[in-house]
Amino acid sequence: MTDQQPLRAPAEATYADELDYLESLDRGPKPFSWRLSPQLVRIFILGADKSDGLDRPVAQKWFGDRSFVERSIVTLASDRGLLLIGDPGTGKSWLAELLAAAICRDSTQVVQGTAGTTEDHLTYSWNIAMVIAKGQSRESMIPSPIMTAMAEGTIGRFEELTRATSDVQDALISILSEKYVTIPELDTDNVVFAQPGFSIIATANSRDRGVNELSSALKRRFNFVRIPVVTNKRSETEIVRFRTTELLRRHRIELEVPPTLLDILLQSFADLRAAAEAANSDEEKLESALSTAEQIGVLEDAILHSHFFGDRTLRAETLAASLVGTLARRTPEDLAILNKYWHGVVEPRSRADGEPWPAFLAGGRDAIATLS
């Protein structure tokens, strides 16, 4: 059997060489059992510049205001949980993963919040076969990712906190407050205490407000860091280029993304966001959040289509078809909005600016007609 690479390695594996390098030169004070000092955690996430005095480059991995990263790091150095909240696609989960990778070299202790998430996902469950054979013991217990993080003094992650029910949120209050979990089924060795360095990074989608509201008690146990939608064109370009380069490397695809097509993608999303802000009702808005993550999804779709079904050249027609296919989720509402955009914005722009807008216009029209 040959060694196989995972479909997507966690950040601590992908950037292991950088983390090893930063750890080897780190002389700064480290909270608890942290692998890197707060200053080098920030450098790992935001990249190094000349003033940092490093003898090798450290790539920027998260693109946003440095104050958000610094506040997140300071929170995790305290005894409070960190809640990253914002619209879909703003990089909350990616920032949480990078923070955990830099602090404890393990970003995989994750619980996904859903309507089906139970208290067992936060604490523990039992290996039934072992319980039948040997009875209840620590050996037959299956610790949750959060309990594992507690016992090891590392970072536990909780994705989509507002998707979890109130019972699960209440269990999280106890963990954040008391810093231990009791196991009433055991007579001895029945408490798991959180070790120094343990903390929780949770994420919440601001569009899910009202699904399962966070209680005041739970809110008090978190420091909130609100991650805004990226609207700066330069920052958004850097994010899309970074993630696209990663995609091409992962798929081992050699394909150039023309700067003109990247500009068209960014401009189209900016136009559609402006239209959504000017809309008078939800029916006049695309269901899509029009996030940077969705831009990356459009570009990924176009790249893979060009690689497998085209001539391995990314063309404006393919990009347009991918954009329509990705954003047209409701029929006929989203198609009508996209059709209005294509006629009212893309068509005049294709006449004024020339290629590749005319090809983008044609590709979008064909895609809308096919889906109508």
Rank of each mutant, 00 (worst) to 15 (best):
L265W: 01
N223A: 10
A16D: 14
D3A: 11
N212D: 01
E23A: 15
A115D: 01
D301F: 10
R243Q: 09
Q112W: 01
K61T: 03
D282R: 10
E160S: 02
F224R: 15
D170M: 11
W342Y: 14
E97C: 14
T90P: 05
G91H: 12
V240L: 11
G344R: 13
D189A: 06
L319K: 03
S125A: 05
G310T: 08
A149T: 02
T148Q: 09
Q267M: 10
S288I: 00
V181N: 09
A151K: 13
D263G: 13
G354N: 05
A171N: 00
E256C: 11
H121R: 03
D49S: 13
L319I: 07
N127I: 06
L266S: 05
P184H: 08
F32M: 09
L83I: 04
D208K: 08
A164P: 00
I264T: 07
V58D: 05
R252F: 09
L286C: 04
C104W: 07
T313N: 15
L371N: 01
L335W: 06
I73Y: 00
I227C: 03
A302C: 02
L99Y: 09
A149H: 08
L98E: 04
T165Q: 14
I227N: 04
A13R: 12
S281Q: 05
E236H: 00
V191W: 01
Q136G: 06
E18C: 11
E355A: 13
A204Q: 03
S268T: 15
